[in-house]
Computed example of a mutant assay.
Amino acid sequence: MRAAVIGAGMAGLASARQLALAGWEVDVLERADGPRADGYMMDFFGLGFDAAERMGLLPRLRDAAYRIGAVEYVDAKRGKRTASIDYDQFASALDGRLLSLMRPDLELVLLDALGDAPEGSVRVHYGARFAEEDGAEHPEEVARLLEGADVVIGADGIHSSVRASLFGDESQYLRPLGLRAAAYVIDGAPELHAEYDGRFVLTDTIDRQAGIYSLRDGRVAAFLAYREDAAGQPPAGEDAPTRLRRVFGGLWEPIDRLLDRCPPHPYDDVVAQVVLPRWHRGSTVLAGDACQAVSLLAGQGASLAIAGAELLTSLIGPCTDAAAIESAMVEYERRWRPVVEEKQAAGRRAAGTFLPPDRWHLLMRRWALRGSSLPVVKTIVMRSIAGGTGLKGTTGV
């Protein structure tokens, strides 16, 4: 049996590995020229943590993880700490099953894990656009790989071209939450790296939030979130670096230094969810953010990508004909959709409080975070941040 996986992100690479271990031949088609170098820090826990443990990936993920003692909130004008989240308490609320990972590092772990499959069973084709995309290179080769596949898995992200080819324009299925998020990493800032080594610092601000943290290789990372209406009506042709400098310039002096070094093409995208009435058609099925984007506010995008991919491939892996594959896809949706809907609901709730719209909401968040040091409040707050662990018996593996 052969599979074509569109997208070499978390869901795509996890799907490719698991199918190859089940005896399939797999081609992964990725539009980028190589693994992504930029990204943001993620909390990895919940169903994805459980799936990674079953897949035998935890040792490699632990090696790639960062040790974060606390997330600090600071007054952007004075630089004084206003509140913090103790990550040891967060981890304790999750029974220690929490890792802090940079998105590119998680991708590299999954890419390396393809080597666990039989030699030659997985082939990753970088610079290969999905045949339906404008400007697709080598369309004949891509078409050949797709036509010869028993299953096509569309794991090409929130702006999925595979989804568009199946169900139409993304405007029908993308649900923006009124926010945007940006992230990038810079080299050559030793003074910033030293100042924020071992620290993850966020501004305690209204409508906008800027974060800064140091990486182990000497680089410094920026995380920026803002309300779309806070950006105002952008001038025609405004690029992402210019927009970020306009929105965040003057907010906080360390961020001004990072903005001066913003690369030409930072990650900068809408915070949104994907809501679809169905996730498959014919021999093609969607995975990861292409069908189940919960938004980064829910905090479990990467976790759900891996857990969903494990479930999907556990069902498809034993199949030997089209009828069995169709049944597997139906079962995947039946078992996984309730989990996604639960996490999306949590993400929508978080969207209302993630960026305080006024000083009153800012103070409420600050007091809640300060109160999280109390034993009873701590458990409630940390469980709320975690968003629950999902439905029991979902994966069934």
Rank of each mutant, 00 (worst) to 15 (best):
A350C: 07
R257W: 00
P254E: 09
T82S: 14
P277A: 06
G39M: 01
V270C: 07
M10Y: 14
A328E: 01
L251Y: 00
L111N: 06
L215Q: 13
I158P: 03
E133A: 15
V201F: 00
G148I: 00
T203A: 01
R199M: 10
E238K: 07
G250F: 04
R243V: 02
D156I: 11
L286Q: 06
L94F: 04
G393N: 07
L13Q: 07
G39N: 04
A113F: 02
V275C: 10
L362N: 04
D289S: 06
G232D: 09
L391C: 01
P104A: 02
Q292P: 00
A22D: 05
S84E: 14
D75I: 05
G120C: 15
Q233I: 13
V397P: 00
A309I: 05
L251K: 06
D204W: 09
A240K: 02
S160V: 03
V397I: 13
E119L: 11
V339R: 07
L94V: 06
G7E: 14
P118C: 03
A236I: 04
F200N: 12
A91F: 02
W360L: 15
E72R: 15
R129D: 11
V109R: 12
E228R: 09
E310Y: 11
V74G: 03
V71D: 12
A221G: 10
G178F: 01
Q300G: 05
P241K: 10
R78N: 03
A149C: 07
D269L: 02
V162A: 01
R103S: 03
A346S: 10
R17H: 04
L259M: 03
A368F: 09
Q300I: 10
S15I: 02
L369F: 13
R219K: 10
A22G: 06
A3T: 10
S100T: 10
D105T: 02
D187K: 09
P35L: 14
R337A: 15
R383N: 15
E228C: 05
D269W: 07
L202I: 09
Q273H: 08
S92R: 15
A322M: 02
S283K: 15
Y226V: 03
V122F: 04
G347I: 00
D95R: 14
T205S: 15
L215E: 01
G250M: 05
A302W: 05
R243C: 08
A14T: 15
G308E: 10
G168S: 09
L297P: 08
G79R: 12
P59R: 04
T242F: 05
V5W: 06
A302G: 15
P356H: 00
L369W: 04
G46W: 10
E25A: 14
F200S: 13
D229A: 13
G198F: 04
D50K: 13
R31V: 12
L304T: 14
V377C: 12
